[in-house]
Design a protein around this nucleic acid. Sequence first.
DNA 1: CGCGTCTGACTGACGCGTCGATCATTTAGC
DNA 2: GCTAAATGATCGACGCGTCAGTCAGACGCG
Lengths: 216, 216
Amino acid sequence: MTEATEGRGKPDRRNAILEAAWPLIAERGYHHVRVQDIAAICGTSTGTIHYYFPGKDDVLQEALRYCVDQAFIRQGEALRQIENARKRLLALIEMQLPAGVQVRNEWSIWLQFWTETCLNPELRALHNDFYERWLDAVVRTVRRGQRQGIFRDTDPVVFARLLTSATDGAAIKILTGAPNMSVDSMRQMLVNIIDTHLSLLPDGGTRAEAAVAGRA
Amino acid sequence: MTEATEGRGKPDRRNAILEAAWPLIAERGYHHVRVQDIAAICGTSTGTIHYYFPGKDDVLQEALRYCVDQAFIRQGEALRQIENARKRLLALIEMQLPAGVQVRNEWSIWLQFWTETCLNPELRALHNDFYERWLDAVVRTVRRGQRQGIFRDTDPVVFARLLTSATDGAAIKILTGAPNMSVDSMRQMLVNIIDTHLSLLPDGGTRAEAAVAGRA
DNA sequence: CGCGTCTGACTGACGCGTCGATCATTTAGC
DNA sequence: GCTAAATGATCGACGCGTCAGTCAGACGCG
């Protein structure tokens, strides 16, 4: 795969194709994206797309990787300056809320990625590589909080399983337009999970502070 | 839609087509199912499929409805004889665990349904109709438990949001082959949610009993 | 500097396989 | 013998991938 999908020519053009491809996938869906559509957005021809990528599937898979990598880098930068573990978790949650178009599109990509992975086990390795990063981010933040003495000693892996499951499930509800879930109630639910499972105080601790930090 | 998809002829043949279609969708994916494939399983021709359904999309959408309805009926029957609210919830969870091929396929259908609904808002009404049933089942069971005096007076809707989100998220992890989630840890996680949010005792109550009932 | 050559990005019309849908025809039931 | 049910060859649209060709700029050489 490395040499097959390794781009020829200038990487800016190649990136332009990927940058055009992934929002298209997010909005129309993997199976409804035509090579012609990507070419049109880049202001180029279908031949050019095939000049940089062997086939349509390669464009789409690379676009997937591109999108996930971009998001991961963005999150990493945002978290770098936050020391307090609780605030890191809250910031992590805040960045996952499908509020803007960007994050909504990223969730759409994930949803489709899940579907394809479920149908085609060959994608599992790639998927789990991506997903593990996000899960590890939670686990490491919990451990940090426990070292800082602001979190109870809950099993970090078990907690991360719960938090990420609830996050994914809630995002689905929002994307599908479920009437009983909104961005606000998603935030509230996730913050509540943190309070319930990590807080030192039995009643859940500083809810008010959490809500404020969550909106930052 | 009503008259367009309303079947002609004997309903057994029509149902046979749907019965053949939905596992095919679950295993190969909506977009990879050919009319020819469905016909082949039924031991019939593509013409017959089009005799009962106007187009391919109609077959697939009806198959979706068929699958969801069947599952809902099955669950309703299983729950009918269970009086105790906690045992009802545990049974509900147990039936959602993607352990066998049947339930796995149903989750695959849901996953694809979510994806399509996210991409095509016209499906939202249908999707929310289906989803609401499952959410209501949880809400009503919680209320029942509160009337029975075995559940704390947590907000049933908020609780249902959490439980269903976590369920959906956990199922996705299992279907995508995530290394840190198994059927057992999914069960454990969901039972733990019940204990934490509904149990009368502060420590979570009868975990042992719950685990046993869960396997029934 | 000027000329010829070469390379490599880019084009877009076309071939070809695929698949949904059609419809003339056959078969079965009453 | 009439109607409903079922067939499957055939049509036509669609879209991926190919490939012969264009063009601009780099390069070498006198």
